[in-house]
Design a protein around this nucleic acid. Structure first.
Lengths: 247, 247
DNA sequence: CGTCGTTTTGATCGCAGTCAAACGTCGTGG
DNA sequence: CCACGACGTTTGACTGCGATCAAAACGACG
């Protein structure tokens, strides 16, 4: 079985067989995390880097009034805290949204890999920078798009990212995320998320139920929220040298 | 004169004299950019890395309906596009908010530095990761804080960052940013920014006029918006091992 | 003194928030 | 097999924050 990490990294940087095997070798120590429990808590400085193998997780911050802001969704192939090798402590928490299978990778191992394999270093760097680009899109989502566009854009992102790791065959994917979690991720309320999803359904843009999302026509959905995949810096969309959007 | 970059980097990573001189040597090619013009445009892949020496700039994205979202403010000492060495093209633009003095640094120079000076590499990495942490705070700002808290939090951030580079003596700093730009940075409208600033003034939290911001009592302002500087990962606040917030 | 960009004010609107209750589904235990 | 509770989704009624539109005031500058 090909690790989702490999699929993900290959989408943004071509890899050789040796490099692929190197990644494979990272996954030694594997563990399970139950839904609703922290993979890493805010303020922690773990000795291991965490990599999601199965399941969904989320970066989040909790405010003093108890409200929560999700700042990213993590799916198989995503690193939770690559930066912990550089920064002192986590400035946010990471919670498992479903039961998760997680790889624990020693910092020393990462250091060794980056020292010996420049292409992988680039790939990891790249992945981090793409995460940052996603954050910027989320910022656009909440400040300058209406609810419908914001949710649509988020769904487009998740759809594409799931595709990259081979988890969205036929435009159908597991979306094991509650509406409350979607609300925390878009800065809306659960009630309004519910109504927005209903509008998306009524307009035939999505089919969503029992944890599964189906996108009848990706083009239409992307056009509805002006989704341009360029910000994900995928190899496939690079240097296409075109002015029109890649819906 | 000590470059703001050095002050900034030293706030997050201690540097030796040699390293400081190395940074100094980066600044060879310097140019001026007029207010309201792009330092780098969206989609560009410049050959140079840009570093702000004087003035204010902003990262931004423009939507199809013409509205703009500012995703970061850049002040002296900030790199505009360190990531361009890794990514193919800009996924957003950078515009000068005031007349700016900018250093153009060849990619090869950056590469040479990072190859020869691990401590500097760490420092640059760190700076990038702190930028990401700031993005997360902005996400909290617009989704889960009300207008007053959001603006206050933004002002706290700018206040602290200006202090770091020595541009905010006595809690007084230049804030050459229009209310429209603040609106684009918070996801609000200019009108509402105006009213929110008035509230902040009326409550004695800030004094703001003619491009200058004065914070009578930093503690109070920070408490008003639950500002915790930990997310900036400063050396001074690190491993203080305390539970209470660093207002 | 007129112009332009910016800030300020006022009146009105509407999107999304809030509060609360009902409903469906599923797993658990009687 | 059913009662029960937990959890998530859905619906309704009402509220309010911030948006929108428009105009006036202000201030810097040529």
């Amino acid at each position: 079985m090909v690790h989702p990490v490999i699929r993900k990294l290959e989408a943004i940087e071509p890899l050789t067989d040796t490099e692929r095997r190197k990644i494979d070798s990272l996954v030694r120590d594997v563990g399970d995390v139950a839904r609703k429990t922290d993979i890493i808590a805010d303020g922690e400085s773990p000795n291991y880097v965490h990599l999601i193998l199965e399941g969904w997780a989320a970066r989040y911050k909790v405010l003093r009034d108890g409200s929560r802001r999700i700042t990213a969704f993590l799916i198989p192939g995503d690193f939770c805290d690559l930066h912990i090798t550089i920064l002192d402590a986590m400035d946010h928490g990471i919670v498992a949204l479903t039961d998760c299978r997680v790889a624990y990778i020693e910092q020393a191992t990462i250091d060794e890999v980056t020292r010996s394999t420049p292409a992988l270093t680039r790939a990891l760097w790249r992945a981090t920078l793409v995460d940052e680009a996603v954050l910027r899109q989320w910022l656009v989502n909440c400040g300058r798009r209406n609810a419908l566009e914001a949710v649509a854009h988020l769904l487009c992102e998740l759809h594409l990212r799931m595709q990259l790791v081979g988890l969205a065959a036929n435009d159908r994917l597991d979306l094991p995320v509650t509406q409350e979690e979607l609300a925390d991720a878009t800065g809306m309320t659960p009630v309004h998320i519910n109504r927005t999803l209903q509008r998306l359904r009524n307009e035939g843009l999505i089919e969503l139920g029992s944890g599964t999302l189906y996108v009848p026509d990706v083009r239409t959905l992307r056009r509805a929220c002006d989704f341009d995949s360029a910000y994900l810096h995928l190899l496939s969309s690079r240097s296409v040298g075109s002015e029109e959007k890649r819906y």
